[in-house]
Every structure is written in structure tokens, then in C-alpha cells.
């Protein structure tokens, strides 16, 4: 792991300068709004002029071929992308009424509001219980009874309670990949975030586990705004309300999922969803 403090400063400064002359109007129906967002890995221009409004309480899918910047985009939303030391960003991102690069807005606070589920299940090498309780604990919840309730509620929320309720003290690594991924979702739910980012959460799972996670996503959107990266177009069509099609770091098209799949405006979108490339 490398430090992010040095880069951190440069990162926020670049973004800050832009923000001073950009006023952002966020309606309460939008959770994220990006304005002229650009991102570079060193010289590699990975995101180009991204302007998107992500709606509240809906599932927004990000689709596009490998390497087009999907992961980079959602990792920028919770500033996890800054873990890579060579990253530079310009433009601005508003999360509700907060500018996420504003130094007064702590990155830990952002990530408490904006949870993330990763491509490869990454539970901690701890018991199932401790995995779920980790988030609440670091945010100061110590009471055992309260934690018990949070653990049960989160595991139920992630549709895995019945499978693990008798083995809460076992190591999470004893579970199957699909179960581990739902543990990770439960871990994310335990601190009751506002937005959940999911980076190809089913790409490492078998079809049955995939189906379970997809159903779960449908269930979760009542309480959460979800942004899900997938390179599986059927999945995007099945579970999302809005879809953004990324290509070479640009947003080619962003509209209602039905619209985008049945009646794409851009030729490149059409080529992609009909399987002509990607």
C-alpha cells in the first residue's frame, strides 16, 4: 500500500480550482452529479468529460467494454481511486449537497455514506459476525445488543441470514463465493449508507448466486441508490432503471435502460448492445 497523503493534496487542489468557478445545483432527486470530470493515470487519460446525474433510489448500470473506465468511474465517486498514487483528477463531483473533493468534507465521511461492493468478494479474515460488526464498531457503536441487532438486520437485508445464522462465529472464508459476496453486501449495509457502488459484483459468481444478488439489488433499491458496473448487458437490462454506456473513457449514452436497449441513439451503443464489438 502506498501513502495517499502527498498525492491527496494535489488531488484536491486540482479539483478545488475547478470547483470555485462551477456552481452546482443538486435537486434532491439526484445523489451524484459529475461536471466535466476528467481523470488521468499518469499520462493515461482514463475518464473524459464525464457529465452525469445519478438518480436517487434507482439502479444505475454502467456498461461498456473492458478497460473503458467503468471501475475508475465508480471508484472516483467514493474517492477510492486515490489509492493509486499517480492519479490526477479535474472537474467536480457533487454528492447531494457536498462537493466530494472539498477538503472540509472528510473522505471517511463520504465513504460512510457511499458504500462499495467489490468485484472479488473481500470479506475480512474474521468471523461472519465480526465482518458485519466491523463498520459499526469503527464508527463508535460498541453496545453488544445493538451490534447483535445490526448484524441480524444486515444479514437479513443481504438475504443470507438463514444460511449463516447458526455459524456467525465461523470464519467468513469458509463460505462459498456467492455467500461471501452477500456477506460483503451485508457488511456494507451495516452502516446504513445512502448509496451503494457495486463493481461487477457477480462476475466471480456462479449463475445461481448471480441470480440471488440480482434479486437482492432489486430489493435494496427501495432504501438505497445503487450504481452497478457490469459488463453483462443482460444483467444491466434485467436490473437497472438507468444505463450509462462508457467507451474509451467517455459516456456515449446515458438514458432509461429500456430506452437505451430498445432504441439507442448512438451508433456505437447500438453496435455494442447488439454484440458487434466489446
Amino acid at each position: 500500500m502506498s501513502t495517499m497523503t502527498g498525492k491527496d493534496k494535489k488531488f484536491t487542489e486540482v479539483a478545488q480550482n475547478k470547483e470555485n468557478d462551477t456552481t452546482i445545483n443538486t435537486s434532491n432527486k439526484t445523489v451524484f452529479e459529475t461536471k466535466d470530470l476528467n481523470l488521468w493515470y499518469g499520462e493515461d487519460h482514463a475518464l473524459k468529460d464525464i457529465n452525469l446525474k445519478i438518480p436517487e433510489n434507482q439502479v444505475t448500470a454502467i456498461i461498456g467494454p473492458s478497460g473503458c473506465g467503468k471501475s475508475t468511474f465508480i471508484k472516483t465517486l467514493n474517492r477510492m481511486v486515490e489509492m493509486v498514487p499517480i492519479v490526477k483528477v479535474s472537474g467536480s463531483i457533487a454528492y447531494r449537497d457536498k462537493r466530494i473533493f472539498d477538503p472540509r468534507y472528510r473522505v471517511e465521511e463520504l465513504r460512510t455514506q457511499v458504500g462499495m461492493v467489490f468485484q472479488k468478494p473481500n470479506p475480512f479474515p474474521k468471523s461472519i459476525y465480526d465482518n458485519i460488526a466491523y463498520g459499526p464498531r469503527i464508527h463508535g457503536i460498541k453496545n453488544k445488543k445493538v451490534l447483535d441487532q445490526i448484524v441480524e438486520k444486515s444479514l437479513r437485508g443481504a438475504a443470507i441470514w438463514d444460511e449463516v445464522k447458526d455459524r456467525l462465529n465461523e470464519n467468513a472464508y469458509g463460505l462459498s463465493g456467492g455467500q461471501q459476496q452477500r456477506i460483503c453486501i451485508a457488511r456494507c449495509l451495516a452502516i446504513e449508507p445512502d448509496v451503494i457502488l457495486m463493481d461487477e459484483p457477480t462476475s466471480a459468481l456462479d449463475p445461481i448466486s448471480t441470480l440471488k444478488v440480482e434479486e437482492l439489488v432489486q430489493e435494496l433499491k427501495k432504501d438505497y441508490s445503487i450504481i452497478i458496473v457490469t459488463h453483462n448487458m443482460q444483467q444491466a437490462a434485467r436490473i437497472s432503471d438507468k444505463t450509462a454506456f462508457f467507451l474509451n473513457g467517455e459516456v456515449v449514452e446515458f438514458s432509461d435502460t429500456n430506452e437505451l436497449f430498445s432504441n439507442p441513439e448512438d451508433k456505437r451503443t447500438e453496435d455494442y448492445i447488439t454484440g458487434r464489438f466489446g
Binding site: 458504500g115 475480512f124 464498531r137
Partner: peptide, 25 residues
């Protein structure tokens, strides 16, 4: 590093990540 990322994504600071995830692991 996925394990650290799991902690950071929950809003853990670097110290909390080190102390509660990396050292136990």
C-alpha cells in the same frame, strides 16, 4: 490489498484499517 480496500470503503481511517484489519490478519 483488497482487505484494506474493504475497510477503507466502510469509512475506516488508515489507522483503523491497520489496527483492526491488517494486524489481526
Amino acid at each position: 490489498s483488497e482487505m484494506r480496500q474493504g475497510a477503507f470503503a466502510l469509512g475506516a481511517t488508515r489507522l483503523e484499517t491497520t489496527w483492526r484489519v491488517v494486524i489481526p490478519a
